[in-house]
């Protein structure tokens, strides 16, 4: 499987050698931009180009992946499942888990239990800060909509992709941010969380929780 790693330009210079299993590293955004202020769609153009050039998958990382991060993402699942999205953990520069980048869990207890046996969980949407995307999803699911969903455009896009071909979270795969991420103001976070609610990506309780985390209220 050929994998292209997409990282923000600020990170690309810090990756001396591509992680094991990666064929190429591509700087996917303008210098100084991060996953959030690029509208949650910072990775899209580069992902589309990589797939057009023959990549089997693109791996979006808003930071430096751990050496075993790709292995952890691609480790076998149960029952031969092969979802089109696999998200991983994102930690901030201080080593703490980035709560704003945690995925939304699927309301499927049987799948939750099955996948937990291999340290995975089914999700309905995820952040692009640590995300392996199969080429099929790039080809078939339309582009993200940063104008409507702003910093949460990746969440809305991954919700569509997950509905198309499934998504799992592999928390043992870790991407470490090199800088503190840009965060939207509480008002902006609330507005886009509401847009996600209207798009039926999040239910009202999750939209409130996510807006609070993203906007820095909690």
């Amino acid at each position: 499987m050929s994998v292209v790693l997409l990282v923000p330009a600020t990170v690309a210079g810090r990756i001396a050698t591509p992680p094991a299993g990666v064929d190429a590293v591509v700087a996917a955004t303008a210098p100084g931009r991060t996953a959030l202020d690029a509208g949650g769609a910072w990775w899209w153009d580069a992902a589309r180009d990589a797939v057009a050039a023959g990549a089997d998958a693109v791996w979006c990382a808003d930071g430096e992946p751990a050496a075993d991060a790709l292995d952890a993402l691609t480790a076998p699942l149960v029952d031969g499942r092969s979802p089109v999205l696999r998200s991983g953990s994102v930690v901030d520069p201080d080593g703490s888990l980035s709560r704003a980048d945690l995925p939304s869990w699927a309301a499927d207890p049987a799948a939750m239990i099955d996948l937990a046996t291999v340290a995975a969980a089914p999700v309905t949407s995820a952040s692009a800060a640590s995300l392996l995307v199969a080429a099929a999803a790039i080809r078939i699911v339309g582009p993200p909509d940063p104008d409507r969903f702003g910093p949460l455009a990746d969440r809305e896009w991954t919700a569509r992709a997950a509905a198309y071909g499934g998504a799992v979270h592999r928390p043992r795969s870790v991407v470490r941010r090199t800088d503190r991420p840009w965060r939207p103001s509480p008002a902006v976070a609330a507005r886009h969380a509401l847009a996600l609610r209207r798009a039926r990506v999040w239910r009202i309780r999750e939209a409130g929780h996510r807006a609070a985390v993203l906007g820095g209220w909690r």
Partner: peptide, 28 residues
């Protein structure tokens, strides 16, 4: 072989960080 409908599980799904950490340890 299917989950018994009377017996949950009742997970802390609203707390994504706790779920993520537990799943990494193959627990829920």
């Amino acid at each position: 072989g299917r989950p018994h409908p009377m017996n949950g599980p009742w997970l802390r799904r609203w707390d994504p960080a706790t779920v993520s950490v537990a799943v990494a340890h193959r627990l829920l």
